[in-house]
């Protein structure tokens, strides 16, 4: 409940934040603080320096441009969940954000902090992966973009370098006859996802599946993309039986996480159930 001492710096701009990161070895960036501060209270994290990026205005907000939606890293979950741009053009992200933590947490926790922390049980990573999102990063040698599929490397580990800042998440605007769904089986204590399923389904005019994606939080150390399931759905008429069959035949997760709350095999079974439910809801919403 009592963090260790640290030096505190407040960055007024992205450039200043990058400079501060270079100046202070092992410094940690502080955005909403909802991943870092709990760890500091238990002294599991004791960074020598904190760089507060929470006031950098250019990192906040949702913009829609030319079929692409960009969410500033400092946009809080509540704003992602309430964004009309997202609700109209990418409802999956808004739905996933509305599942994060609780209303108080959503008022302070940021999408960038969430993604950078890469908790496998968090709600956002699978949604961003399912949308084929891109992560925008900036460092001393300039900015770069990483596909969500490449960004999540391992448990709590990402492609974000120590001298870099995550500036935005970019996702394509939904087009055509598309529906999506984020469903989770929450842990009764923490509220985190024991299994979270993010599904996107696009239908042809004749009702057959034109494309789909399905990703999971909570089941594996990084968000799992069940592409074999969705590949099998393309071209199919999406009745319940077809979805059930595609999931049962093609969902294969070899490296599930397991702990005292939920074993690996149980998580896989949850993934099957939630895959079916999420795909069907996404289909219904298309």
């Amino acid at each position: 409940m009592y963090p260790a001492k640290f030096d505190y710096y407040r960055a007024a701009s992205v450039q200043e934040a990058i400079q501060l990161l270079q100046d202070h070895e092992d410094a940690k960036l502080l955005a909403g603080g909802h991943s870092l501060i709990p760890a500091m209270k238990l002294r599991l994290a004791q960074p020598p320096a904190i760089i507060d990026i929470g006031r950098i205005a250019e990192l906040k907000g949702v913009s829609h441009d030319n079929g692409s939606i960009k969410i500033g890293a400092l946009t809080v979950h509540a704003d992602v969940a309430a964004s009309n741009v997202l609700k109209s053009n990418c409802p999956l992200l808004a739905e996933a954000a509305s599942n994060v933590g609780d209303r108080q947490v959503r008022h302070k926790g940021t999408i960038g902090g969430n993604i950078a922390h890469a908790d496998p049980a968090s709600d956002m990573p699978a949604a961003i992966l399912a949308l084929g999102g891109t992560i925008h990063l900036i460092g001393p040698s300039g900015s770069r973009q990483v596909a969500a599929a490449d960004f999540f490397i391992d448990l709590l580990a990402t492609d974000l370098h120590e001298d870099e800042l995550l500036t935005a998440i970019e996702v394509p605007a939904q087009s055509g006859k598309t529906g999506s769904c984020y469903l989770k089986f929450e842990h009764p204590a923490s509220g985190y996802a024991v299994c979270g399923a993010a599904a996107v389904v696009t239908l042809n005019d004749d009702g057959a599946c034109a494309g789909a994606s399905l990703c999971f939080n909570g089941v594996t150390a990084t968000p799992h993309n069940a592409s074999a399931v969705t590949d099998a759905l393309v071209g199919q008429a999406l009745d319940d039986a077809a979805i059930d069959k595609a999931v049962d035949a093609n969902l294969s997760i070899s490296d599930p996480m397991g702990d005292m709350h939920a074993s690996g095999p149980y998580r896989i079974e949850l993934a099957k159930t939630f895959a079916k439910r999420a795909l069907k809801l996404a289909r219904d919403r298309a």
Binding site: R10, G33, D52, G54, Q104, H107, K108
Partner: peptide, 13 residues
């Protein structure tokens, strides 16, 4: 105006 958990914020924030 918005509810937050004041144990998960630094005073400086």
């Amino acid at each position: 105006g918005q509810a937050i958990k004041s144990c998960t914020q630094l005073a400086v924030q």
